[in-house]
Design a binder for these strands. Structure first.
Lengths: 347, 347
DNA sequence: TTAACGAACTAAATCGATTAAGTTAGTTAC
DNA sequence: GTAACTAACTTAATCGATTTAGTTCGTTAA
């Protein structure tokens, strides 16, 4: 086992001072050509790499972005991370990912941990528990210390930070409009209670689409579930009843899981998709792509979202003196991915 | 914006030396009860937290585990990460996740980055490109510097490190045996070329199961694809032909994607699952769970695997003087999750 | 009376890097 | 001949923490 090279060890070996080594490696004109070349050759030969920890301490800059997300298992988040990673790499930043598992305490813990010198800023999607508690002291604390924060997807109001969102209303409207255009007139929606922002906004899009075509909305065709993240037994039961008790010819769901389970209920009831009933879901993931029939989906463009969030954060980090105290909200456009669960549009 | 507290700023404020503050906060008996309490009260009031970077530099220990994985989009990896996180948290370690995107250069880059002071050790699953290149200099380098490494799932030989694997052969055997027991006699397998270790081992399990029951294996029923990670067009084509040209009553696949696509081909051909043909796949994920019909799967117990890998690594980190140079391989048992794609066993 | 001791601190080294502020020796200018 | 200048270094401060090795002063023992 060989010990890692340091400036000190090189200096000793080459019989010069530490600063000479440092300057030589950074091509300072203060050091003679000859000495410079000699030191650089030695460093290269033994593969010297500066210690990042020491650099971070000295520079009070880590060049690292902290990402805190509720769960990684969601395909959407993995695409967002990919976007963040890509943008970060382009600007020489590293990315540290921490999972909150939708747990408030863990979110706080992770932030405190990373805030103590490990990162320069944060990109985060707040956990469900945090939203319910409405306790944002940990966010305010890091912001107060001068660390920029960018929230995405699940954002809360009243925090001094930038936001990146998808246009939920517009996206839902696109999906529902597509069903209307392809002949559906009795479209149901499986969404969340209004206190979950994405649920509320997507429900709005559903209503907007109907409005545009002058179609009356039947309140019975709106199912609001508590939990938008999981598909538990009670949700399954309510979805089953909802589909059995409504004569639907179209169904919009705010996530993939609801759509997949609904498709299962529909298949068992002997109806076919899309002939008897069309399905469109929010979120483009593996499930909707691979199901039989595959499900038409409103894509959230997670990668683009990640890139955007990272780009905003890095921008703030690079010019910290732009303390204009101005925060913006960026919207990522959605797009409809037509698959087998909807009829073809006759143009 | 308020600046972060440091020992220095506290010392100045309280008119004592830095070391007094440090000692007081660590409850050293060298400091009088009175001073200690005063300093601790102040630190608590203003929420002092030591700077991790400074601690890491001083202690030459980061208490951080670096995790390098090919892709996060795989449900399996997300479960492994959850296990690593859980075990790490229990032992006061942090986890940094880096994605290699199956790219050799990125794997090397990530390792070098993290090795320069950011982590104490590594848990990794090598990228496909690395396996093909058989270039492990980056692994040997960090190991040479005294950083312990634990490989999981996709491991390579000839590296001085511990390994955590699932019992691939046993798992495949379980799946195939289940089909044989439920009456299948013409079972096909969609696997990878033998150079991908998991593919080779799972094929072995398939053969073993047949052996046990004295059933002859027809070579035509074995399909070996190049790429086990994606389902590209050429893979789709070969799977389609494979199923159409074989009179199968059972199908085992080494991943979910192959199974899902096969199910689609089978459905289109008018046959039904499991009545005409049973399906079992390796890897328990969201796809197999939610498909209609849902697919019986060999679960890899990713979380357990992550915990095990982290536990081994942390153990090495905590007692570095156990330089016995002995490395072991741990196996995680698989289990069969019976779903709708196989017939029920008559007991 | 004074050496010895201990309580309660402080000073300084250290981790590994960067960099402003010296230092030394040789060259140039007048 | 010497002041001024410069090339090529070195010293030392700094980032924020810990820790070993002092320091100071009051108390105790002989």
């Amino acid at each position: 086992m060989k010990r890692k090279l340091t400036l000190k060890s090189i200096a000793k070996e080459m019989d010069v001072s530490i600063s000479t080594v440092s300057k030589a490696l950074r091509d300072s004109p203060e050091i003679s050509e000859e000495t410079r070349e000699k030191i650089k050759a030695y460093a290269k030969l033994y593969n010297y790499k500066p210690n990042n920890i020491a650099l971070s301490l000295k520079n009070r800059k880590t060049n690292t972005i902290g990402v805190i997300i509720p769960q990684i298992v969601h395909h959407f988040f993995t695409t967002v991370i990919r976007g963040i990673e890509a943008e970060a790499r382009d600007h020489n930043y590293n990315v540290i990912i921490c999972l909150s598992n939708n747990d408030f305490d863990k979110e706080v813990l992770n932030m405190e941990l990373l805030a103590n010198g490990s990162t320069d800023g944060f990109i985060l999607s707040v956990s469900k528990e945090t939203m319910q508690k409405e306790d944002y002291h940990h966010l305010n604390e890091v912001i107060d210390q001068g660390m920029p924060v960018v929230m995405f997807d699940r954002v809360v109001e009243g925090i001094s930070c930038d936001r990146v969102l998808i246009n939920d209303t517009e996206g839902a409207k696109k999906g529902v409009t597509h069903m209307i255009r392809t002949g559906c007139r009795k479209i149901g929606i499986i969404t969340s209670e209004d206190y979950v922002s994405v649920g509320r906004l997507r429900t709005e899009g559903y209503l907007d689409a109907h409005d545009d075509f002058g179609i009356e909305v039947d309140e019975n065709r709106i199912l609001k579930l508590d939990n938008i993240d999981d598909l538990d037994e009670s949700a399954k039961k309510r979805i089953k009843e909802f589909i059995e008790n409504n004569e639907l010819d179209g169904l919009f769901t705010v996530n993939e899981l609801f759509a997949v389970y609904a498709a299962r209920v529909i298949a068992k009831s002997g109806k076919t998709v899309p002939d008897d009933i069309s399905i469109v879901c929010f979120t483009d993931g593996e499930l909707s792509e691979h199901m039989v029939p595959s499900i038409t989906a409103v894509s959230q463009h997670g990668e683009e979202m990640g890139r955007k969030a990272a780009s905003i954060l890095i921008n703030k980090l690079e010019r910290p003196e732009d303390e204009t105290e101005e925060y913006g909200t960026s919207y990522i456009e959605t797009s409809l991915i037509e698959r087998e669960s909807t009829r073809k549009l006759n143009r």
